[in-house]
């Protein structure tokens, strides 16, 4: 008995992989059903449904980039401190001296790439008419995931705390000030008042809620950090699960009827 065979016949190995290697038809079917990571897939699939020229692989790439962002993001969280005192210095150290500082580069380029691949995935889904019945609602979930991807990227943009970050967020969050009814410079905010006192002021409007203050400051950094690292990723993970589940339940990858 060779060492390889000995290992594959050991109790430990057989407790992890409950069947032989997927080298014959039966085990290739079984592996898809018994492996947690593979069971997202069906057992068999139409050949044209997985052709690269049909799918462009953009949805899968988006999911892979989400995993890359999660892994590199967790590693960066071990190092980065979201305070006015340390945020910029930590990023600078990541760039100049820190071992594995390239994680920041991968994280940033992966984020840009993910925005692009989400768009291209939607582009493909539209052009193949894959949003049509019975897949209407999964397209809606996809649009929500697009919004959350943009918000993830937007909240992450602030964290380096350099001129680029702070002013980009300032420009973006100034829009909240103009929110109809809820922004202190938006149309209709005067209508929300009690006994002559405005409820919507620069100290209580949509921009204030977004930034945790009147300007981009320490409270904003903390708020965006939590949104970026915890709140939005949790929601995204949940929606991804539903998105994938529905791909299967709505009839698998789209094909001519």
């Amino acid at each position: 008995m060779s060492p390889g065979e000995y290992i594959r016949n050991s109790q430990i190995w057989r407790s992890i992989f409950r069947h032989p290697a997927p080298t014959d038809r039966r085990n290739r079917v079984v592996v898809m059903l018994t492996n947690f990571f593979l069971h997202l897939h069906p057992v068999s699939i139409k050949q044209q449904g997985i052709a690269l020229s049909y799918t462009w692989c953009m949805g899968g790439i988006t999911f892979f980039l989400f995993l890359v962002e999660t892994i590199t993001g967790v590693l960066l969280m071990f190092y980065y401190r979201p305070t006015l005192e340390w945020a910029f210095a930590d990023i600078q150290a990541l760039r100049d001296v820190q071992t594995l500082g390239i994680m920041r580069e991968i994280h940033r380029w992966g984020a840009h790439a993910m925005v692009i691949t989400v768009w291209l995935h939607m582009y493909r889904v539209f052009l193949t008419g894959s949003y049509k019945p019975p897949r209407e609602f999964n397209w809606v979930i996809g649009v929500l995931l697009l919004v959350l991807t943009l918000l993830l990227s937007f909240t992450g943009y602030l964290l380096p705390w350099d001129q680029l970050a702070v002013w980009a967020i300032t420009v973006g969050s100034n829009m909240a000030r103009a929110h109809p009814f809820l922004g202190s410079e938006g149309p209709g905010y005067q209508l929300l008042n009690l006994g002559g006192y405005d409820l919507i002021t620069p100290g209580s409007d949509a921009k204030f809620i977004l930034l945790g203050g009147r300007f981009v400051g320490e409270a904003t950094l903390n708020r965006f950090y939590i949104l970026h690292c915890v709140a939005i990723p949790l929601v995204v993970a949940g929606l991804i699960a539903i998105h994938f589940w529905r791909v299967r339940k709505d009839g698998g990858i789209s094909q001519p009827l």
Binding site: S44, I45, Q47, Q48, Q255
Partner: peptide
């Protein structure tokens, strides 16, 4: 085009 050569294949190995 999508209907030609459109047999079912196993996900392992063709997709994975």
């Amino acid at each position: 085009y999508e209907q030609e050569d459109n047999e079912k294949v196993l996900v392992w190995p063709d997709l994975v």
